[in-house]
Design a protein around this nucleic acid. Structure first.
Lengths: 90, 90
DNA sequence: GTTGTCATTAGAGAATTAGCTAATTAGCCT
DNA sequence: AGGCTAATTAGCTAATTCTCTAATGACAAC
């Protein structure tokens, strides 16, 4: 969960997630949407992957990324439960 | 909103928020719960305040902090809307 | 196997952030 | 005013993070 919050703290990574909301994209497609160099985007994708906010699947030569909704939901639940006194401790 | 995600990325700050969930606390009370030096906690509180995740009120000699639920709710809403294609763009 | 394309990893530099101690501000009381 | 307590700000160092270029890995097609 710590990784998820850290991953969400970067604007570029949130931009990537917004892009992926509309459907799976390959690494190259994602990189093209940004001014940053491809390796930079690749690194952001790795961080999102470590946080399990996205899932990557190799499709032949390409690697397809998509949002992992279940972990996203977990983060939302987590925050939501924090808003009540006596909610979760972690 | 950027500030809020940034603020939530630090474990110590999330700990502070968890503490405040149970009710308002003074700066000193908060600092006592942590191993870190008081000024360090004070800095974290300033960051949370800038992100408007907490509200501070001076009560005579002391300053009382409490969670700002409305901004918390905003963050949750924000994330929630992201989980739907065609949701908010920002 | 070698060539070309897609993508990640390595390594280094610049910028940001967290933590400390010391100094400062803000308020209360006599 | 002066002293006392509560809290923040200043200044510094160490660690982390972001970004780049260059090198490497993985796969397909010839």
């Amino acid at each position: 969960m710590d990784n998820a919050f850290r991953a969400l703290s970067d604007p570029t990574r949130r931009d990537i997630l917004r892009l992926l909301r509309d459907g799976p994209r390959t690494s190259g497609e994602i990189a093209q949407h940004f001014d940053a160099a491809w390796p930079t985007i690749s690194r952001h994708l790795a961080i999102l992957r470590d946080a399990r906010l996205v899932i990557s699947t190799r499709m032949g030569q390409q690697i397809v990324y998509e949002v992992n909704l279940s972990v996203f939901q977990d983060v939302v639940e987590h925050l939501h439960s924090w808003m009540r006194p006596g909610g979760r401790r972690d």
